[in-house]
Structures are given as C-alpha cells and as structure tokens.
C-alpha cells in the first residue's frame, strides 16, 4: 500500500455507499423499490403511511435500544453481531419511514426526529430497555425476531412494492437474528445455574409484552383486505410454536403471565406507550431538535 493513498482519497468525491465499509451501513438504496411507487389501488394513503410507521417504528426503536449495547457486550464477537442486528433493523426502518414520509409530506428524518411520543406506532416490546442484561437482550430478540419474521414472510407478496421489498431483504435478516437469539437462548437456558435463572427471569419479565404483538389495529384490518398488510393475529400460532420449541430445548419454562393492560383498548399501535419510550426519544431526538433547520 502506498503510504500517501489514504490521504489522497480525501480529495476524491465522497461516496456514501462506498463498499469499503467492513460491515456496511444498511443504506436505504439497497431496498430495491422506489419510495415514490404509486399507492396500490383501493388503499387509503393514510392507512398505508400508518402501517409503514408501525413496521418502521418497531425497527427504529428496537434498533435504537440494541445500539445501547455498543461497547457493553459480553464479548467482542457479540459486539459485532449485535451491531449488525441493529444496522439491519435501522436499514429496514429507514425505508419504511421514507415511504411513510413520501405519503405524508415528510422524510425519514422528520419522522424519526420530529414526532412526539404519541405519534410513534411501535409495540411496547421494541421500546423497553435491556438495562444491559444480556438475558433480556436475548429473550427480547428471540420474541421480536420470531414475530417479525412471521410478519415479513407474509408480506413478501404485499401489494405495496416498498413493503414487499423490505420484506424480501428483511426475511433473510430476521432469519439470522432469530437464529442468533435461539442459539443464545439455548446457551443461557442450558448453560450454568446462574444463566438459567437469569434467562428465565428475563422471559418472565418480557412475557407480558407478547400479547400486544398479535393485536390487530384498525389500519391493519383495512389493509389486509387490500393485500397490503398481514393480520398479526394470524402469526400467533407460528410464533408460539417457535418459542415453545426453543424454550423446551433450552430447559426453560414458558411463562404464564398475563399481558399488560391497554388504556381504553389502546396501546403502541395507537400511540399509547410505556414510560420507557419518552426517555429513548428524548435522547434520540435531542441534537436534531436543538438544530431544527439544518443538514448534517
């Protein structure tokens, strides 16, 4: 290598998607579908935008929580794996938010950084903090990725080309995340006495947030008919089967915990969140809100 090369490269044009990134950045252009594609026939653009926000916010907020692990993971190999997962989800979120932005007159950043808590549409499971407990991290990833994979599988044929493209890429990613989480569930569940106790406790704490994943919102119900969305209730059997299989093999007990309650029937999909989301967004949006009218 010529010793000057590294510096000479500075004079070149800066290309955002340079393949020299070791691990990639999950940049939007990989999505393979035009953000500006026409809205499918018979679909209310507001419903489609809301649905993109649901799927996008799940990915964005969970990715944000996963990135709390940076420099805190139990081993360097896990640093890389967790960051990969966070990047995958961030990539999915960016496409979905860009699609929603196109439909509502905004963009990915205005949606990520300018909405209030109540305008976020993610499920509660995405917004919890792991509190740097690796068992919580593994348990949440197992539940979340099993569920999202089941959703994305069914969205491969979505009438919306952007959602279908996100599903196409996302299925591979989520398969990987689920595999990672399942393997770690086995190691922690069937590892040491301590890890077994911790893993079981994590599942017990997470289980009340599972029920919400299968609740169908009004927007989803309308979009199912148009072939755009999937009814999450239909994924329950598949997700249960995966979780039962993994937990049994990991010598863990499926928790018998009731779901957290809704407020007048409303929860994350309707913008009613846990107390955790506000803090995550306060941090995420702080700098962008301090400098509202500029580029970075």
């Amino acid at each position: 290598m010529n010793e000057q090369n590294a510096y000479q490269s500075l004079a070149e044009t800066t290309d955002h998607d340079d393949p020299r990134w070791a691990f990639g950045t999950g940049i939007v252009e990989e999505a393979g579908a035009e953000i500006t594609s026409p809205v499918p026939d018979g679909v209310d653009p507001a419903d489609l935008a809301a649905y993109c926000l649901m799927l996008g916010d799940d990915a964005l907020v969970y990715s944000h929580r996963l990135s709390e692990w940076v420099s805190n993971a139990p081993e360097l190999e896990e640093e890389v794996a967790l960051a990969n997962t966070a990047l995958d989800l961030l990539g999915q979120a960016r496409v979905l938010l860009a699609r929603a932005g196109h439909l509502t007159g905004g963009d990915e950043d205005s949606l990520a950084y300018r909405r209030t808590d109540a305008e976020f549409r993610n499920v509660a499971l995405a917004e919890l903090s792991d509190g740097l407990d690796f068992a919580r991290c593994v348990g949440r990833m197992l539940i979340f990725s099993s569920w999202r994979l089941a959703l994305l599988h069914r969205l491969l044929g979505s009438a919306d080309p952007v959602i279908a493209a996100v599903a196409g890429k996302g299925v591979k990613e989520l398969t990987y995340h689920r595999d990672y989480a399942a393997r770690w569930t086995l190691r922690l569940g069937d590892g040491t006495d301590e890890s077994h106790v911790r893993m079981q406790a994590a599942l017990d704490a997470l289980w009340p947030y599972v029920g919400e994943l299968f609740r169908t919102s009004d927007e989803e119900r309308r979009l199912v008919g148009a072939g755009v969305a999937v009814d999450p209730a239909q994924t329950r059997e598949e997700v249960d089967a995966v979780l039962d299989q993994v937990l049994a093999q990991a010598t863990l007990t499926r928790p018998d915990k009731p779901s957290i309650g809704t407020i007048g029937g409303r929860s994350g999909r309707q913008g009613v969140h846990t107390e955790h989301l506000g803090h995550a967004l306060a941090e995420m949006q702080s700098l962008a809100r301090q400098h509202p009218d500029t580029q970075w």
Partner: peptide
C-alpha cells in the same frame, strides 16, 4: 443521539 438516521447508521 446521532442527528439523522444516515449519520446514525
């Protein structure tokens, strides 16, 4: 706290 999603990625 990255100010855009691209910067965050």
């Amino acid at each position: 706290r990255a100010p855009t999603l691209r910067r965050k990625a």
